[in-house]
Computed example of a mutant assay.
Amino acid sequence: MPEAPEKFNSAMTTWQEWQNAPWGRLRYAIAEANLARHLDGRDGGPLRILDLAGGDGGDALRLAARGHHVTIVDYAPAMLAVAAERASAGGLTDLITCVQADVTALPADLGDGAFDVVLCHNLLQYVDDVPGTLATALAPLKRGGLFSMMAINRHSAALNIAVRETDPAAALAALDTDKSRTQTFDSALTLHTAEEIIPVLRSLGCQDVQHYGIRSFCDYITDDARKYDPAFYADLERLELATTARPPYMHTARLFQLTARKRDS
């Protein structure tokens, strides 16, 4: 079951520091660029987007700034309050709607299949029923609409431990488990791989599945201080963008992002 919302509320300061750090900025910049591959140049004007477990609006605000209407669903009120504040500060209030709800039990008016895009970013690691959660997430999406999901990549776990903690014994143990823990929210996690999730998406009526890697290099560069240097960060971002869809790098990236279209029939 998902963690209690109080954990996410109480970790707001730490979470915002993470978002503003180079690795947090890369996470959102790369995800936005990958979505733009599928959204830019489409006719029909602003899109209606549903951001499930959207927290404080990290993805939503970027999409609203492009002129789209975004509904953020999250069950942590402190996260939604910050999302509303950020929308107001950015002059995006008219394009952002915040709804406090459990993603696994969406309000009826959100399940009408009228959304052009649905995001399900960094939710799966917190839930027990992955197929059920994905089915619920896909229900509000129009036929032919774009679905985007993101999760921590289990393939990266052992590599991350070996490189950053220089602990080969712990890295070896990580090869045979899908369990982990997030320090930011002090929560248990279940890790997945793109190879496991792609067949589930296809079984739920998705097609044209695309696999991207988020932070293919950043997390394996141990000099975190240097990442704050603007020139170094700019070079790193260009490298990450160049390899987000380039094999083999997405297979060991810290996060994986999958986009897909909901089958028309």
Results as ranks from 00 to 15, higher is better:
H68Y: 06
S156I: 05
L63E: 01
R86D: 01
N153I: 03
F185N: 07
L95K: 14
V130D: 04
A173E: 07
V73I: 12
L159Q: 10
C120D: 08
P107Q: 14
D128T: 09
T182S: 15
A188S: 06
D178L: 05
L61P: 05
G90Y: 00
C98V: 15
L138Y: 11
L134Q: 00
L138I: 14
A105M: 11
A64H: 08
T177G: 04
V130L: 12
L92G: 06
S180V: 07
M150P: 03
D94V: 09
R66Y: 01
Y75R: 05
R143M: 04
D59H: 10
D112I: 02
S187P: 07
R154H: 11
A65Q: 07
V70H: 00
R181E: 13
D186L: 13
R66Q: 15
A76L: 09
T182R: 08
V118G: 03
L63W: 01
D112W: 02
D109F: 02
Q100L: 05
L159M: 13
G145S: 05
V70P: 00
A105G: 10
T166S: 13
A81Y: 00
L175W: 08
V103H: 07
F115M: 04
A65P: 01
L134R: 01
G144H: 13
R66P: 09
I161P: 03
V73A: 11
A174Q: 11
L63R: 01
I161H: 03
A139N: 06
F115N: 02
A188W: 01
M79R: 09
A81Q: 13
V103L: 15
A64C: 12
A151W: 02
A114M: 12
L119G: 00
A114Y: 02
L175K: 05
R181L: 06
T93C: 04
A78F: 01
T182E: 15
L95T: 06
P77W: 11
L189A: 08
F115V: 00
Y75L: 02
I161C: 02
A76W: 05
D102R: 14
G132P: 13
G91H: 10
H155P: 10
D94M: 11
A173W: 08
N153R: 03
S88K: 06
L138P: 04
A173P: 01
L191V: 12
Q100A: 09
A157V: 05
A158R: 13
V99R: 07
A170D: 12
Q100K: 08
S187K: 02
L191T: 09
V82Q: 15
L110H: 03
A89H: 07
V99L: 06
A157L: 15
A89N: 08
T177L: 10
A87I: 10
A105I: 06
L124H: 04
Y126D: 10
C98Y: 01
T190R: 15
D129L: 11
L119D: 00
F147A: 00
M79N: 14
V127K: 02
T184Q: 09
L141Q: 04
T184I: 12
A60G: 01
V163A: 06
A114P: 02
T182A: 14
V127M: 09
A174F: 07
A188K: 12
V103G: 07
L172A: 15
A162F: 14
C98E: 14
S180I: 08
E85F: 00
